[in-house]
Design a protein around this nucleic acid. Structure first.
Lengths: 127, 127
DNA sequence: CTGTATCCTCGAGGATACTG
DNA sequence: CAGTATCCTCGAGGATACAG
């Protein structure tokens, strides 16, 4: 297990997504914080169930996400190499998204989280 | 694996932390969203390394968290039964925090996430 | 030492209209 | 179909002062 004390002496760099050069690397702050927003995990999970999906299919799986946020979330996930984007030069346009190897390697962790959440649903929400 | 399509037909209830009664339960939206803020995972990880810690010790492990946010995060984690709070009637006051059984059961998932983040550090941040 | 009480900033997320 | 472009809301997070 890591020394969180050591890792966690950062000074507010989390927002800018910059790394602190003086200290070693806190995985939570520097990596996990990039995907711990409202939609990223859901998008990854949806992509996993569908293997490769078009923009509209993802949108349909997450009916209450706005176009803007879906687009920007996909860009963010692509930026960090968790998903890949393939655009076809057709009319009307077609764009397909799928998990990268890196993205796929995150799935077991997400599944473990989901399983935990399921198993502890009542405990968490009781009272 | 879950049908995320089915689970994810909620309509914007995530903010209020209310459950959607019409549909079954999406673990990500209804459970994980409660702890996917800036500090909760770090607090849980810190508490795990220290077993039971005083308020000031946690603060020292996370030097750049504000008092207000630490207090409210601890309250939130206590509300959902991930940590327990024990106050001693002394002067000056002493308050000790520790993981509950439920909180402890989340640790393996967090560790798995951290291990993943470590192993994919360069891939995620390259270029 | 462990908190409240205010006030404030800032950006994630959203609503809506438009485009190639 | 898969996006941009604007404008806006709202609340997480923070700074500071004070309290028991």
């Amino acid at each position: 297990m890591y020394s969180f004390g050591e890792y966690c002496i950062f000074d507010g760099k989390i927002k800018t997504h910059k790394l602190d050069l003086k200290y070693p690397i806190c995985p939570i702050r520097n990596i996990l914080s990039r995907f711990s927003d409202k939609w990223s995990l859901l998008i990854l999970a949806v992509l996993y169930t569908g293997k490769t999906m078009r923009y509209g299919e993802i949108k349909k799986s997450l009916p209450d996400i706005s176009q803007k946020i879906l687009t920007s979330s996909l860009k963010n996930l692509e930026k960090y190499h968790l998903i890949k984007r393939k655009a076809y030069a057709e009319i009307p346009p077609r764009v397909e998204y799928s998990l990268t190897e890196t993205g796929n390697s995150l799935i077991p962790s997400i599944q473990m989280l989901i399983t935990w959440a399921e198993n502890h649903f009542e405990e968490i929400l009781r009272k």
